[in-house]
Computed example of a mutant assay.
Amino acid sequence: MQLANQSHVTVFILVGFPGSLKLQHFLFTVFLVSYTLTVLENLIIIVLIWVNIKLHKPMYIFLGNFSFLEIWYVSVTVPKMLSGFATQKMDISFTGCMAQLFFFLVLACTECALLTVMAYDRYIAICSPLRYPAIMSQDFCIRLAIGSWLSGFFVATGKTFFISRLSYCGPNIINHFFCDVSPILNLACTDLSFVELIDFLLALLILIGPLIVTITSYSCIISTVLHIPSAKGKRKAFSTCASHLLVVTVFFAATIFIYARPRALTSVNAHKIVSVVYTVLTPLLNPVIYCMRNQEFKDALRKTINGSSLRQIGYCSKSSI
């Protein structure tokens, strides 16, 4: 097929979530609260990991990267959606749409790689605990984190390049709340077979490969845990990876449903619902899932809060004297 050098469409209209004004106000409030909480939760995680030396471990290095990613992940889509609810204007330029698509794909693909790296970290911690400090050195962890970001960048660049080079003659209405792959492809007025194939192969590359590594890691983890003689030891081992396994299951299920398909997704309602799950709901719940079940993190949070309270009391006492 031939890719067009320039699109005829200069502005896209995002439909979002149509409905009554009351519904729009309700959704605005829900998404604003979700966005604010997501940013605050992940900022707290980053700050706690940064200031607590005891959390300077491989698992928390990856979790810090993950929290940083989640802040930008929701910031790529939700503020534009909130603006649409507030102003009832959901237009976005062609360049802006491609930019939003690119950054969203970078973050989504990076998250896929990071979750896989975190699964590998849990595999080494449980299956080879004596070798864990030697294998998961700080330098190696940093390289794994950088590699995750680079993989997301390269896959997103390939996807966005081919999609942006298609010809869009109209209509220019995207029946979605942000610029995503399938809704954009549905508007192209040229042959999609080549671009869909490239998009599908890149989706398989960034989804299926990491998924195989993750499944293999957890298969080994489960096998190792089942051979632990004590019930207490089994519970402790499972508790260290149960949260991550839950997040991985939700993320991969949602992304494979939408992106690992050979043709553009035509079920608009299904696309929107699943998109809300992995763009808004999971970033909101991930900090709770990861940290509220982690005793080490809860202890660090408690000590930080208590330390701040004691310093405040000491300051007030000195001021009164």
Rank of each mutant, 00 (worst) to 15 (best):
F161Y: 08
Y123M: 12
K80V: 07
I142T: 10
G233M: 09
D199N: 15
L205H: 00
F68C: 05
Q24H: 11
Q6A: 12
F161L: 13
V277G: 03
H227T: 07
L48F: 04
C220A: 12
V277M: 11
A4I: 00
E70H: 13
S217G: 05
T10V: 12
G209M: 14
R131Y: 10
L82R: 00
T216R: 13
A260L: 08
V274W: 02
L150T: 06
L114P: 05
T110V: 07
C127P: 04
M81K: 01
A300S: 05
K318S: 13
P129T: 01
I173H: 11
L226G: 09
S309I: 14
T95R: 10
L205W: 01
Y35K: 00
S164W: 03
F94I: 04
T77Y: 10
G64M: 12
S193G: 06
V268S: 07
I221S: 10
T160N: 11
F200T: 01
C127I: 01
S219I: 09
I135E: 15
K272V: 12
T214I: 15
A242C: 12
I142L: 14
I44N: 05
D91L: 11
V195G: 05
C141S: 11
S243W: 02
A156P: 02
R263A: 15
L301G: 01
S20A: 07
C189K: 06
I126L: 15
A242Q: 09
Q88G: 10
L246C: 10
S267K: 07
L40S: 06
V33W: 04
F85E: 08
S182R: 03
I49W: 03
T240D: 13
H271D: 11
S223E: 14
F94W: 04
L130H: 13
F177I: 04
S93T: 06
K232P: 08
A156Q: 00
F162Y: 12
H227K: 15
S128C: 14
L114E: 10
P283D: 04
I221Y: 04
L245S: 10
M1I: 10
V288L: 15
L284M: 08
M81T: 08
Q88L: 14
C241W: 01
T304C: 15
T36Q: 04
R165T: 08
L27S: 02
F200N: 03
V181A: 04
Y315P: 02
Y218T: 07
I49E: 05
C109H: 09
R122I: 02
Q100Y: 03
L82Y: 00
C169W: 12
Q88P: 02
F102N: 02
A242Y: 09
T87V: 08
F103T: 02
V51T: 12
A300M: 03
L207Q: 03
Y290P: 00
S7I: 01
C179K: 03
A145F: 03
Q295V: 11
V248I: 12
F104D: 05
R293N: 14
F140Y: 11
S7V: 00
L284G: 03
L211I: 02
Y123C: 09
G314R: 10
Y168R: 00
D191K: 06
F17M: 08
T95N: 15
F66P: 01
V248F: 06
